[in-house]
Design a binder for these strands. Sequence first.
DNA 1: TTGAAAGCGCTAACAT
DNA 2: ATGTTAGCGCTTTCAA
Lengths: 371, 371
Amino acid sequence: MAKAATVYDVAERAGVSIATVSMTFRRPHKVKEETRRIVEAAAEALNYVPSASARGLAHGRTGALGLYSFDYYLPEPFEVPVAPEPTSAKTRGGDVAVVRDDDEDLRRFPLYVDEVQRGVELECWQRGYALLINGGTRADGPTAVTDIVGRVDGLAVLPRAVPDDVLERIAQRIPVVALSENTRLDGPSTVGADNRGGMRAVTEHLIVGHGLRDLQFVGEAGWFDARERFAGFQAALRGAGLRVPRKPSARFTGHPQDTGAAVAQLLSPGGDGLPEAFVCVTDDAALNVMAALAEHRVRVPEQVAVTGFDGIVAGRVVRPSLTTVRQPMQAMGRAAVDLLVDRIANPEGPQVARRLPVEVVLRESCGCSRP
Amino acid sequence: MAKAATVYDVAERAGVSIATVSMTFRRPHKVKEETRRIVEAAAEALNYVPSASARGLAHGRTGALGLYSFDYYLPEPFEVPVAPEPTSAKTRGGDVAVVRDDDEDLRRFPLYVDEVQRGVELECWQRGYALLINGGTRADGPTAVTDIVGRVDGLAVLPRAVPDDVLERIAQRIPVVALSENTRLDGPSTVGADNRGGMRAVTEHLIVGHGLRDLQFVGEAGWFDARERFAGFQAALRGAGLRVPRKPSARFTGHPQDTGAAVAQLLSPGGDGLPEAFVCVTDDAALNVMAALAEHRVRVPEQVAVTGFDGIVAGRVVRPSLTTVRQPMQAMGRAAVDLLVDRIANPEGPQVARRLPVEVVLRESCGCSRP
DNA sequence: TTGAAAGCGCTAACAT
DNA sequence: ATGTTAGCGCTTTCAA
């Protein structure tokens, strides 16, 4: 790897000062045509690429935006499979394994994060920002997020990736957008969806559309948006004159670890029996519930209805397909970048809260037959 | 936005020199316990975050890796939908649109790029590198890629995103890994799959397993891996004593734009009629072919078989499900990072070519019934 | 239109 | 164990 050329090298070769080289790249039209060509030729010859570090330091901006999440996957220890032999033209087909379909699981579908990320990517590229993507394990603590903060001009943060107080601290330093409806945050702008209205609507669908009355909420209310969703659930029950729980049941978290046990308990001899519907805080939770039910041979929606929240692709593909509330995930990603860019241009601008509409998507799992 | 604190501010507040502050963060154990606490307290109080630009400039490394692709999506002009009204607890469900399922298309599934990207992300995080993701439109030319080169210590490049000569130039400056089997590149290391063997195996499956003899290759051979795949296709035909085309038909590119017309031509009164199988260079091309066939009411696999290459999720979900050759995409992403990190540690290291095995996945579209 | 020079915030010798 | 200091490569006044 040859030592990288710098402005000095280019300047020397072109017979100009470093200021002129810099000018040639930053404001080409402010440089005499001929000089420009000479400098460009020198740069080309030296394979010159400006250092973003130096640029960022001098200019006070990195030109990059960040997206922070945490990894939902527990990455297994990594091992690269290696082709047994170099394959030549003579290779018999037999060297290649042949399988009869495959066991990819639903985890490989784009999740909420992926779809938001797509929106962020597109908008960043369109606006000429580089995008830094970072995710920490929970175990990393705030260190991981600090690292990225030092690298970017603005940061979008996915829900539950960073504690609120840390988020507020960061917001004192650079523009931050939280992908959450949590307007109580002091500092970060927010891009959220209509959690409450959406959950209320889908719950009312179960009550009014399917005549169900015994509904079990699934999910913890440990984060703002989840609380809003639970509030929407409550509102629907209240509106229908049904008994309203004060908080989510501790037993039904929607986590893969304990959903199986929770379902087993319901079905056990001394158990409470199935409710008429599981109203889940996320699609992910709903898929976990459906998996647990399937294990116990409980039929959805015949024996119990299930609904989710988010609108991830897996919910459309699973059988029965999942009735849910869809957030405009990609648009939310784009909106986040939008706010960030505005705020960077005007650092004293107001903290804004943008809320995008949701949509109830009726599929099979609530009892609506396949369209 | 308060002006960001620097080492100088922290040093002053802690009553130490800037070197000590730096040391405290870089090599904490080299600093006296007490001093460390004082410095950390000062940093905390000032909400100090080290500037990656300054650090990168001083240290000569950015601590970031890059992934370069181009956008396969043509991003429509962006418009953020806005919730009509702030939704309060009183909102009726009627404010939320209710739809009967939805028309998400296959684009929303993770494509080849997405799966590779996932691997790159996981590996970067695990190794403590920040990840810069950048994609240019074709129209951007080499500018977009130059920008990212100045920002990272190493760059992974997806197939077809950057012309070979540009790739080689970049490789003179920083470690580069091309996600391609193209070992002719001078400079970049490569992470590829067994394109030739895989395509030969799936083609042989059609010939031997299903007794087909009239096979039509779909796809352009404008990139290295595609040429390898075509060569595998040829090898299979040759091995079976069938007539071997010298190059891919110009008519069957697999692009959405002209696949419809190509199929229409075959079916037209004076047309050539259908082959027994379409052997496609990518899953994407195969999905386009299947869509075109469906439009003309041609049944797959009854009237014609179709196969793909890559193993994207959409191929598993589409009906009929797609027989294909699966590349270990996530592993390839991880391997790319692996090579990059090695090369950064040892810049004079050799250019390496890693090839991962592929797997033929039999599904419905070749005529194998559902397992 | 171009050049000289002063930083930007940090790291890493080297000195103490 | 800590402080002094010289850059790292670039941008940006300010002069010429």
